[in-house]
Design a protein around this nucleic acid. Structure first.
Lengths: 305, 305
DNA sequence: CCACTAATGCTCTGAGTGAGCATATTGGAG
DNA sequence: CTCCAATATGCTCACTCAGAGCATTAGTGG
């Protein structure tokens, strides 16, 4: 229903829905997959679907039997790389959060996301593979080009700017450009490039996963969505572990609790849970705050009106 | 190219591209329109387009002759409300920033965005119309329902939580639900509802505009995109006026300059410009910082690794 | 010279964040 | 039973930054 129509005949386009569904189990971030980990749940948008999101939920449940909780749109693209068949595909990707349940369906399953992005796990400091595989490979790719060297250094925090955990997509794209991932090698190999550790996925699914991880890492900083991943009751230690799993970084325990308590995000249940050390209080998320706090979130120097 | 195909025959879908193009001229935020302000530039995605974004740029230039600078994707939806014709349409919307130039093309033009959302302009305090038209109309709609009353109060800052300028879409949707805008009345009038001031647009274009404004208001808080709207050289006063136009709120002048200077976002040109009062330094945006600052932006209590 | 209008310079204060020190509880190893 | 390892919790101190407001400067138009 374009307001003004193009001259050409309306063309045959299909629309695909793709899901990045995340859970954190036993302190590991996991993603829901099909085809034994080689692809994300996906399917085409059909007229029977009431909305894009409804269509997505239906595909995920059909393919994996995993119910979805929170869902938000990620990005839409029309990758011409995919135009093998001449038929154009529009892909609408979504990020979903869930609690890991028993999956069913052909080759559906959950896989740790660091399996696809081993360089993204900095919970125990920068992973060895960055210095051992990535840095040298990028150095070969950059050669004497200062722009490339600088980009590699900044993106992977190779010098002293530090690691920015949100640049998941930029890092993947850099590795793609440098020819260090199989997805690139499949269609256009870069000579001399050695594939990195880190499992590939079909088509551009790994790129979409990177987009989802990046979005989630950014989002947890201004919105406590991680409660969607927690069970009904939990300890602050488990909560911290979940956030660390997503962020791929270790957090300062005392300050983390201060943050959670200052915002009154949780309430006590009165119960305790044994841990490896001192027993921990079991708490529960206070969903009410959503409406309570008129989250104003300023960063502009507003006048007092 | 879904990994697993649905059972039904691939259906006929068309994809539409819609642009919210914003400029700020003489301290007023403006949006690029066609059809004499009744619609946003839009057209269908065609095989000749290299990418969605390329298609969008092409449509905007064809319809308005306005060149685009910064562009980012907003949202994608498949509104079943639009399925009048039985043919489903996927709409991909974009936000673009530009410097207002001479437009050409049928009924293309720039219009102040507060013409469509008069309740969003709080630069001189809350507009009268909120107390005079909106609050009473919402009160009638809410009746004795506490959930509705609370929602209205929070969304429009009717009590003391204050105004949150980012909730542009929520406010529009509330007015839509309450039957106070013509777009709703067109397809499903709410009896007894009196239309509010604020011009309507075709289809759901006003909703898309609201989405764009909301995105922009949120974005300027963590990324200085407003420089895209400024001329080559400008004064800090003009910059502030531009940001105020977007945010719809007045800013504390001294603190605003402190913010800009602390981040070293601008550099001096050595020139001055006369104003109504003391002459102002003319400055220029330091585009370099983009790469300089490894914008880390933490809000999580990271451990020192 | 005076009134008016912006642009600039600075100061004070309180809230919030980064880092650590110290203590409390359990379970398990000598 | 005592000591130690592993967590959970309490609190403090230093520093940065954002919110507010006071004061001054440099043009323009009577």
């Amino acid at each position: 229903m374009a307001v003004e129509r193009g001259s050409s005949v309306a063309e045959s386009l299909s629309t695909e829905l793709i899901a990045v569904v995340v859970a954190v189990t036993a302190g590991e971030p996991r993603v829901l997959t099909i085809r034994n980990g080689a692809a994300l749940p996906s399917g085409s948008f059909e007229s029977g679907h009431r909305s894009l999101q409804a269509g997505l939920r239906s595909w995920v449940e059909r393919q994996t039997h995993q119910p979805l909780g929170y869902v938000e749109q990620l990005y839409t693209f029309a990758d011409s790389d995919r135009a093998d068949s001449g038929r154009r595909v529009i892909s609408v990707s979504y990020l979903g959060l869930a609690r890991e349940g028993p999956v069913a369906g052909a080759d559906a399953g959950w896989h740790g996301w660091y399996r696809y992005f081993p360089w993204e796990d900095h919970r125990g400091g920068a992973p060895d593979m960055i210095g051992r595989e990535i840095a040298p490979a990028l150095a070969r790719w950059a050669g004497h080009d200062p722009a490339r060297r600088s980009r590699a250094a900044i993106t992977f925090g190779l010098q002293d700017q530090g690691w920015n955990e949100e640049w998941v997509l930029q890092r993947y794209e850099l590795l793609y450009e440098a020819g260090l991932v199989p997805e690139r090698a499949r269609r256009d190999p870069v000579q001399g490039a050695v594939m990195l550790a880190g499992e590939a996925m079909a088509l551009d699914h790994r790129r979409i996963l990177a987009t989802g991880i990046a979005r989630l890492r950014a989002k947890i900083k201004y919105r406590p969505v991680f409660f969607e991943l927690m069970p009904e009751v939990f300890t602050l230690g488990q909560l911290q572990q979940t956030v660390e799993a997503l962020a791929g970084r270790g957090l300062h325990t005392q300050n983390f609790r201060r943050l959670i308590e200052a915002q009154r995000l949780v309430e006590d249940t009165g119960q305790m849970q044994t841990t490896g050390g001192r027993p921990a209080r079991l708490v529960r998320y206070r969903g009410e705050i959503q409406s309570e706090r008129a989250i104003v979130g300023t960063k502009l120097p507003l006048a007092r009106s």
